[in-house]
Computed example of a mutant assay.
Amino acid sequence: MLKKAVAVVAAILLLGPMMGLVGIALIANPAANAHCTISGNIMLGEIPDELTVTTAGGVTFTLNKKQLTHAATIIETGAGIDGVGVNGIRIALVAALTESTLRQLANTGTYPASGDYPNDGNGSDHDSLGLFQMRPQAGWGTVAELMDTTYQARAFFGGPDGPNYPSPRGLLDIPGWEQLDPGEAAQAVEVSAYPDRYQDYRPVADSILDALTKPSNGTGAGSSGSEITGETVPETSEVVFPLPEGAWVQTDVFGPRTDPITGEAAFHSGIDLGAPGGTAILAAADGVVTVAEFSGGYGGLIVVEHTVDGQTVATAYGHMWQDGIHVTAGDHVTAGQHIGDVGSSGRSTGNHLHFEVRPGGTNGEAIDPTPWLTDHDATDLLEPSGSSPDQCRGA
C-alpha cells in the first residue's frame, strides 16, 4: 500500500461539555468470597490461600490469604467508585504493594493506640499507618480511620466523595491520571521520596487481578486478549488508518502537552483525530476485542489485540458514546471493520477519536501511533500539523 496524505477537512462538528462518567457496579464483601460483578463482565472470585508472585525486577515472594483479602478490599472499594475502573484498581494495588506489601501496619512508636486496632504488624516510617502508609499529620485521617482498610482504600481513590477531599489528593483528584504509567500515578498520590520503586510491582498487581477476578470466560482482569480467547491471534492481513479517508483532522499529538481541560502539564498517550460525531471508527488491523466498555477518562473505550510482524500489539479507541460501541469483548474483527462511532464521552472537549498503539498487548505501554502507522503502510496518514484546537481534544 502507498502512503498518502489527505487534505484537512473543514469544520469539525462540536458537542457540548464532556458527559459524566458511567459508574461501576458496587460489589459485595470480599470476605464472603462471593462471585460479584466488578466492571463489565469481570467478576470477583474466591480468595486463594496464597499466591506466589514475581516483581518486574525478578524478585519472587508469596502473598498470604490475609494480604490477598486486603487486595480484595481495594478491588471492592474501587469497584464502587465512579471513574476508577480496572486501571485505577491496578494503580491502587501497585501503591499498597509498594508501601506495605499489602499489610495493615500499626505504628506504635508514634501512635501507641494504633496497636489496639486489627493489624498485620508494626511499621516505623515517620507517622505512617496502614496499607498505603498514610500520615495523620498530612491530613489523611485520624488514627482510628487509617487503621480501617476500607477507609484507606477510599482515601487513596479520592474524588469528590472521598473522605479526604479536596486535600490530600486521591487518585481521582490527579489531573490526567488515566494516561499516566501505573507507577507514576501511584507516586502522584503517595508523593514518595523514592518514586521509581512503584513500577516494580506492576506485574504483581496484574497477577493479583488475574487470581482474584475473572470475566465471564474465566480469565482475570490482568490478562491479555489472547488469554481471554484461549487462542493465538492470527497475523493481520493489513494495517489501515482508523478513520475513513477525508473525514478527519489531527488535533493533538503523542507526548507531553498542556491538558486541555485542566491547563496543567500532562502526557498524552495517543493521537487525537477530530471528526464529526458518528463518523465510523475502523479496526486498524485483524484481531480480537479485549475491551469494549466505559473506562474512566477514555469514556467509551474499545481495545483490540493483534499480531503484527509476529508480535502482539493492541490498538485503543476512545471517547465513543455508549451507543457508539458496536463490538463486545471476545469478538474477532478484521482490518477496516466498523467497530464504533466517533463521540465525545469521558475527558473530552469535542467529537474526536483518541487512538493508541500498545506493544505487548492490552495492558502494554503506549507508543507514538504516527510512526507505527507509517511503518505499516496505513492509508490516509496525515503528517502531524501541530494544530491543537481545544474543541476536539481530550484524554
Rank of each mutant, 00 (worst) to 15 (best):
E231G: 00
E231S: 12
P112I: 01
A285D: 05
L146A: 08
K4L: 13
G58F: 07
R347L: 14
Q152V: 03
A72L: 09
T60H: 02
L129C: 03
L146M: 11
A79S: 13
G246T: 04
S223D: 01
G324T: 03
L243A: 13
Q391D: 11
A34R: 11
G45H: 06
A113M: 13
N363V: 07
I12Q: 13
D120Q: 01
L97Y: 07
V240K: 12
T77G: 08
V289N: 06
S237V: 11
V288M: 10
P17V: 01
T69M: 03
G336Q: 09
S224H: 04
V204F: 08
I325K: 01
G58K: 04
G220W: 01
P30M: 01
N87T: 10
Y165V: 09
D116G: 15
H126N: 15
D127S: 01
L146K: 02
I42Q: 11
A28M: 00
R358V: 09
D323I: 04
L97T: 09
V313Q: 00
A221T: 06
G278S: 06
G170K: 05
K66P: 00
G85F: 08
Q133T: 00
C36I: 13
S167P: 04
V239E: 09
D148H: 05
P163V: 10
P195C: 06
